[in-house]
Structures are given as C-alpha cells and as structure tokens.
Design a protein around this nucleic acid. Structure first.
Lengths: 393, 393
DNA sequence: TGGACTTCGTTCGGGTATCGAATAAAGTCC
DNA sequence: GGACTTTATTCGATACCCGAACGAAGTCCA
C-alpha cells in the first residue's frame, strides 16, 4: 500500500504504484487499488496508449497465466531537479521511477542575490535539459528546492535569512519564463522529506525528515502527504529556544535559537575560534570522520540539542520515523546523539515503534523529492495540458 | 467552507454543513458542495424522508425566490456524551446541531478502578437516555472522553498513569454491552479538540487544543480532521522535559516533565506545601479569580512553562489557532502567559496570523466533541444499520 | 499426458451517481 | 407590468465502475 491518499484509480495513483514497484502487473493493480479488474484494464490501456506506461514481457507465473509486466518508461517524461544550498547547487534529472540521471554538483553563490545567481542556475538546467532531450527523454517540468521559506502559492521566496535581495523574488515564474517549462519551487527540507518518503519509506504515513547541514530544517509528511501548516512554515525547528544557546543572537533576530549551537554553520564558526580552519558543513563532516576530537564533540553536542528539540516533536506528532538528512546526518555521532536523546526523553509509546535513521537516499534526497513533486504536480497522468479546464471540484 | 474533507455530497457532509450553519438551504448546499442542483435536491429529499433533515419555512429573498430553509431536527438523533475526569464526570446529550441537553456534573472516582467506576457511569448514562427518550429524541450513540490514552481501534484504555486497574480495560465494549448502544471512546483532549473545532472554529484546518486541568494534554486537528499520529499518542506535551522541573519525578516514570510543574495537580500540591488547602484544579482556579497571590504566581508560571513547550509545537506545526481549554484555561494569567511566551519565542511567520484563545465552549467542549464524534462515526446519515455491508473500499 | 484448477486479462451488459438543460415557482426592481 | 434573479424540481444523457462470462496461458497431480 502506498501512503498517498488519492482517488483510487486516478492515473496518478496507478503511475505511482507502478513507479514505486508496489505493482508490476494489472493483477497487482487490481489488488492494490481495490477496483474491478475490468476498470483497471481499461485505465492501464489508456496509459499505455498515452505512452506513460509500457509492457515489457511477462513475469513469473504464480500457478496460472503469467502476468504481463508494466513499467514506466523514462522516455515517458522526466523532470529537471535542483537542490540549492547557499553555496552550492546539485542538479539532475529525475524519472517517474525514481531514477536519477546526470547528477552534478556546482559551487554557486545564492547569497550574491537573485540577479547574480539566476544565470548560472538557468545555464546548468538548460544544458541538462538539452542533454536529456538528446538522450530521447521528454522533459516535462522542473522542481527546485530552495534553502529558505517559499510561498508555494506564488512561487516566491520569502525573507530568507542571510540572503539579501531574495525577499519576494518570483523564483518560480522567472525560471519558468527562462526555461520554457513549468516550475515548482519549495523549501529544501520539504523536498527532502518528499524524496525520502518516496524513495526510502513509502508506506509510512507520518514522517519527519530533519535536514542538518549548514542550517537546520525539517519537512513533515502527515497522512502520506507533505504537511505545510497554516502559512507554509511548518517544520521549523531551527528557531526553537535552547538553554545552552543562552543569549546568542540568531539570524532570525531572536536569541538562543537551536541554530546558533547545532547548525553546521555554528559548528564551523566554533571550530574556527579553536584555530581549526573549516569552511562549510562538509568540512565539519570530514573532520569528524577523520576523528578530530573537537569536531566530534561539537557534532555530538549538536545532536543532543537537536534530539532535545525533536523529543518535543516526537511526543507531539508521534511519527513512525525520524529521518536525518543533510551533510551532518552522515556523521555517526550526531545520529547516535539524536537517538539517545529521543529514547531518553520521549514517551515509550512514542518511541517503541519509532524508526530513527539517517537518510538512505543520501545527498540525492532533495533532488529526488524536487523531481517527484514537479512530475506529480505539473505533469499529471496525461499529455501536456489536458483538455478539461481544471475541474472546478 | 467547512474543513472536513469528506466525499462531497455524502449524507454526512450535507448534515454537517447544515448543522454548522454553513448552509441553510438547498441553494447554499449547491454552492458549498459544488454539485449540480439536481443532485443536491435529490440528496436532501432522501435526508428529509429519513427524518434527518427538516424544512421549516422560508428565508429572506436575495432578489429571487425565497429559499426553503433546512434544519436538523434534534429528534433526528442525539448522542449521549460523557467527559470523564479523574474525580468527576460531566454527562449530557448532544444533538447534531451542537446543542447540548440535560448536562450534569457528578463527582465520581476513576482512580478506584473500572469495577467501582463503571456502575455509576452506566447508571447516569442510562438515566439520561431514559429522559431523552421520554422527550421524544432518539438516542443513537454514546461518546466518551477518557482522561488517559485510549486505543481507538479496540476501545481499550491503555496504561493510564495513577489509575490502577484500567490498563487494557475494554471500556468501549463494556459500555456498549451495558447500554445497548454503539459507543465511541477516545482521549479527553482529542474530544475537546473535536468539540472546539466544530463549535467555535469550524473552517480552521490546523488547530491545537490544549487541555490544562488536573493534567495537561492536547488534541490536534490537522487538515480539518483529528490527528492521532502513528500509535495514537499524538498531542502529548505533558511529558516534555522542562528545565525548571529539574529532577522532579513524574507519573510517567521519567523526570522533569512539564506536568510536574504546570499541571493543576502540581500547582495544588505546591499550594498545599504553602499551607493553602486546595483539592483540585477548580479550587486553584477559584483562588486565582479571588486574587490569591501565590496561586496567581504559580498559574502564571505554569502558563510560561506551557507556552515554552507550545512555542516548539507552534513553530513545528504552524497551526491557525491555539485554544486553551480545561479548568486552568479560565484563569486569565495563564492565557496571558502562554500568549506572551508564544509571541516572544515563535517565528513571526508562525504567529502573525495565529489565534491564541481560551475555549469558547468552556466546560462543555469535551462533551460536545464526544457527542459529535459518536454521531459522526456511529450514526451516519441514515437509519440504524445501512444495508450495504460497509463498502470494501 | 491429460484433465482440474489457478492466475491473468478482456469483453460486454447493466447499475448508479452525477450532470445539464428545460421548466416551474416565487420574488425583486425599475 | 414586464425583465431579470434566485430557488427548486423533473427528466433524459453520460460517465464510471462493477460483475459475470469468457478466453488465454500455466501449474499440478494422477
């Protein structure tokens, strides 16, 4: 069972079941969807005709006629995806199956403001699109994860800390205009949550994905869908007050935020005061894996702080899993510290069946989520623009 | 627009729109449901025939034919509701309109264990049922709010603190058996959340209702529906660690929980050490309204502690409203302290349109929620048991 | 080796829910 | 007193889904 709660039998639902590997034949779909075999047969035929689904031979018999296997052809449509960080960008293509193609990482300066940052990004994406088209794949949409708040209704960036010039920038529309493709923009932690959910934990209904990198953010999956909250700011744990952060001023204008003691940026700053030269959170990670004691201590402490905040979240939200993503999540001490804190502080009922783990899709989680979201939202189960003018509901 | 996300046009949805006052005529329903007028007309006719909906004259013209007003007759079915506390029980009847009838409060000892507590409860409910039937109303179901964790699947109580003998007690089935009616049991904070949502804030999608009484609990409405989390323990904020609680042992077996410094029980205990005789949280409330300085200080401090924990919840969950319910919520200093804490600590984005308020349905919130939930779940829009064998889905 | 049974998939007739147009009823407004 | 609104119902037309029947392809065992 997939977690998504769509109309059973919608084209999107069928594609998702096949893409995720949950269903590989019409008979599987009948079981998963709970619809009549005749209905499924008709729906599948439509999708095959539309080129969104392909048959490729037959599977093993289970005591009767062999099933005719279904697959999603990557030629049926891919999305370009970009996972933006403040100083780097990861760019690649994502197919409906969850496969990624042609993933590259570039250094790239978001803090220079939209005017300076947009060009290189558009350039990378346009080149990627060309290469994908040359490989015979249809580019249907673009998904972008941005390291700051995004108004998903308008596609504008909202008051990101430490990134002057971006406030109210219409990132979605500008990219769409330049690339000639529909674009979806969302917060990077939300994209990661979507990616980890689809790639590593489909089936889970309630999931919190924490991104611990230069900054700290989290994306929330509730009832199998991304939860954004009233104003789209759900998932923020970065600006929770932590006693250990005392009076430290935070980029948000408040004091004592979690971010000031547990983010990659904070740890790097602390290491620099100790005379250890580090640049970003990947440097911090490297020091930890090399066994540098100060870095290890600081990372472990960061994990404790994050765990303390998450203990409130886990008691309140009672998720099935907490996934740690971002550069620092690759540091074992951080994961261990979070685990310890959660098991110590949370109610047994909340942790007894809780999975606490590092992201399995690793650095590509954000990319996957962005690509998936774009395909789902912008390239639904039919040709470019369906004739029906967006059913009034 | 109501927040509930049901099949548009389901009998339940229609009844809810009428009950909440959102729709008062067929034309209103057409607008709200987005269905064709003919469809709505047919559906309404069915409901009128079934006695679940009544016409009562005509409304004001809006420039054309006058609408024929629809109303939910309370004779169409009510639920018995009980809001249980550790030392008292509030019992009453709830109609589909949200009206309450014949509400009474009894002292009653849950801590004496199920065998001693069940009889009086059954007695009260049976008497109430008799009176309601004598008044010409059909009793369709029973809803019960229990002050502790409940497995809503089985209707069993789960390991409640300080209430020996209740673990795994099949409260739902025992009551159903004794009363001869379908029974719904859930945690009291959940019931309160449902009640406040329906009665005071329909239309809001994301809502946290905090019950501050003898204990502290919260109920969460997400996407217009009660959110229970993976194992049904969502909404717990009582056992979050608070620095001010230091090493105080908590009923949950851990130390330093919010409950040990901010619950009515904790405040009462503290007052007793000061030589002030108090019994329950209503006593505490009385002292505060009388201006007793120690009580006021303690309550204000409790508000700060609760607010500090809620600030994490508000940042993370980004609700549209935080509603304070339970006895202590009637103390102004507590509400003020929570407000202050949230505005000070949360992100502006999370609080700029956040409503923070005391429960408007007051002491009846839990009753209302229990009644509503029972009617919704157990007495859907038709006669006792529909012929269709619970559509396989 | 050949039936009996299983699994997979399609075809086809029928049921149900909803829609839209036509119609009627009742009122407002100038 | 007509022109236009709003409300409500009636009546085919339609889309969607189901179930039964059937065909196709395989397994299993005597």
């Amino acid at each position: 069972m997939t977690a998504a709660e769509e109309q059973p039998g919608s084209a999107e639902h069928v594609l998702e079941l096949v893409a995720s590997g949950t269903a590989a034949s019409r008979a599987d779909l009948v079981r998963e969807l709970g619809l009549a075999a005749s209905t499924v047969s008709a729906r599948v035929q439509e999708l095959v005709d539309a080129g969104l689904l392909t048959e490729y031979g037959e599977g093993a018999s289970r005591g009767g006629r062999r099933p005719r296997l279904l697959r999603i052809p990557d030629s049926g449509g891919i999305a370009l995806a970009a996972d933006l960080g403040s100083h780097h960008a990861r760019v690649g293509a994502v197919g409906r199956t969850g496969a990624t193609f042609d993933v590259t990482e570039h250094s790239f300066d978001l803090t220079a403001g939209p005017d300076r940052a947009l060009e290189p990004l558009v350039g990378r994406l346009a080149e990627l699109a060309d290469r994908q088209r040359a490989a015979g794949r249809t580019v249907r949409a673009v998904g972008v994860g941005f390291p700051g708040p995004v108004d998903t209704g308008t596609g504008q960036v909202i008051a990101p800390a430490r990134m002057p010039g971006w406030h109210l920038y219409e990132l979605r529309d500008r990219l769409a205009e330049r690339l000639g493709l529909p674009v979806l923009v969302d917060n990077d932690a939300n994209m990661m949550a979507l990616g980890e959910h689809r790639a590593a934990h489909p089936g889970l209904r309630h999931l919190v994905v924490v991104k611990a990198g230069r900054g700290i953010g989290s994306g929330v999956i509730s009832d199998g869908r991304l939860y954004r909250g009233a104003r789209g700011s759900a998932g923020d744990i970065s600006h929770v007050r932590v006693d250990a952060a005392a009076e430290r001023p935070c980029s948000c204008g408040n004091i004592g935020c979690l971010e000031t003691v547990a983010s990659g940026a904070a740890i790097a700053a602390e290491l620099r005061t100790l005379g250890i030269g580090v640049d970003g959170s990947t440097d911090v990670l490297r020091l930890v894996t090399d066994g540098e004691p100060h870095a290890t201590t600081l990372v472990r402490q960061a994990g404790r702080h994050i765990g303390a905040v998450l203990s409130v979240v886990v008691n309140f939200f009672n998720p099935e899993a907490v996934v740690l993503a971002g550069a620092l999540a690759e540091a074992e001490p951080l994961v261990a510290a979070v685990r310890g804190m959660l098991y110590e502080r949370c109610l047994p009922m909340a942790t007894s069946e809780l999975t606490i783990t590092a992201a399995t899709s690793g650095a590509d989680a954000g990319l996957l989520g962005a690509g998936h979201a774009a395909l789902r939202e912008l390239a639904p189960g039919s040709r470019p623009v369906p004739m029906t003018p967006a059913a009034p509901r």
